[in-house]
Simulated scan of single mutants.
Amino acid sequence: MDLIIEGVGQAIRLLIQGDPEVWAVTWLTLRVSGLATLISVLIGVPLGVLLAQSRFPGKAVVVSLVNTGMGLPPVVVGLFVTIMLWRSGPLGVLGLLYTPAAMIIAQAVIASPIVMGLTFAAIEQLDPNLRLQILSLGATRWQVYWRLIQEARLSILAAVIAGFGGVVSEVGASMMVGGNVKGLTRVLTTATVMEVSKGNLDVAIALSLILLALAYGVTLVLTVIQQGRRMG
């Protein structure tokens, strides 16, 4: 208990004193996870809507693959992204390994199936006659898709929240593709693991609390938007 209290005090001191390294790590965490979530939304939402509205043989297999992707182990994603970005890999010429860009790619791979799967479920739950009603008004296919997204916006926002939560808390992929390089790719999760390995449990607790506060802050903003739209 004393260790936890000491960790809380350490977190408060680090934030009040404006420790530049802590703020840099926190900002990088927000930037990497935020951009990864944005990319996953740009990929996952359209594909989720398209999958929900498509009818083709083997659709159940595709849906099961998407659902499996929602539980992708981050270390597996990190391994394959590392292989792709390795010096001798297919994308090694880009020189992205051990950079924030590599971390964003890995986290986007993790979050995209989550957003896609939950978007698919949200669209599937809509009234099947809604699409026909919109088409009867002369809407194009893309206008139909956009209207369906609007109708399912509360559930899709929940998908965004889930996607962000899935990446801001992961450590395996970030460690593998980022390397936990100080001042370059160190984020709150990898910094916490490092401090634990060094035996600095009070600092690790402090970083964990800052991570929780960051995750809660972003989730709160998204939730306010979600509930505001519901109230509206």
Results as ranks from 00 to 15, higher is better:
Val22Met: 12
Met70Pro: 01
Ala215His: 03
Asn129Met: 14
Val218Pro: 06
Gln10Met: 13
Val224Leu: 15
Glu170Phe: 07
Gly44Ile: 00
Ile12His: 05
Leu72Trp: 09
Val81Trp: 08
Val187Ala: 04
Ile156Val: 10
Ala159Glu: 05
Leu220Gly: 04
Asp2Cys: 00
Leu148Lys: 11
Ala102Leu: 12
Leu211Trp: 02
Gly117Asp: 09
Arg141Gly: 00
Asp19Pro: 01
Ile110Lys: 10
Gln125Glu: 15
Val8Cys: 07
Leu207Trp: 11
Val8Gln: 01
Arg229Asp: 08
Arg13Leu: 10
Val22Glu: 06
Gln150Pro: 00
Thr29Tyr: 04
Ser136Glu: 07
Pro74Trp: 11
Gln227Thr: 08
Gly71Asn: 03
Ser40Gly: 14
Gly117Ala: 15
Ser136Asn: 12
Leu220His: 10
Pro73Ser: 09
Gly183Asn: 05
Ile156Thr: 08
Gly18Cys: 03
Ile114Arg: 13
Leu184Val: 05
Leu14Arg: 11
Ser136Gln: 09
Tyr98Phe: 15
Pro46Phe: 04
Val62Ala: 15
Leu135His: 04
Val187Asn: 01
Leu118Ser: 02
Ile205Asn: 11
Phe80Pro: 02
Ala108Gly: 13
Ile110Ser: 09
Gly166Tyr: 11
Ile134Ala: 02
Leu212Phe: 12
Glu195Asn: 11
Arg230Phe: 12
Leu135Ser: 05
Met175Asp: 06
Tyr145Lys: 12
Ser136Phe: 07
Glu124Leu: 14
Ser33Pro: 00
Leu72Glu: 04
Ala102Gly: 07
Leu207Met: 06
Thr99Trp: 12
Gly228Met: 12
Val8Pro: 10
Ile5Thr: 13
Arg141Leu: 05
Ala60Pro: 03
Val196Tyr: 07
Ala11Asp: 01
Ile210Cys: 07
Gly179Asn: 08
Ala213Trp: 01
Thr99Arg: 12
Val77Arg: 14
Met175Ile: 03
Thr119Arg: 11
Ala173Gln: 08
Leu38Ser: 00
Val187Gly: 01
Gln10Arg: 15
Ala36Gly: 11
Gly71His: 04
Val41Asp: 06
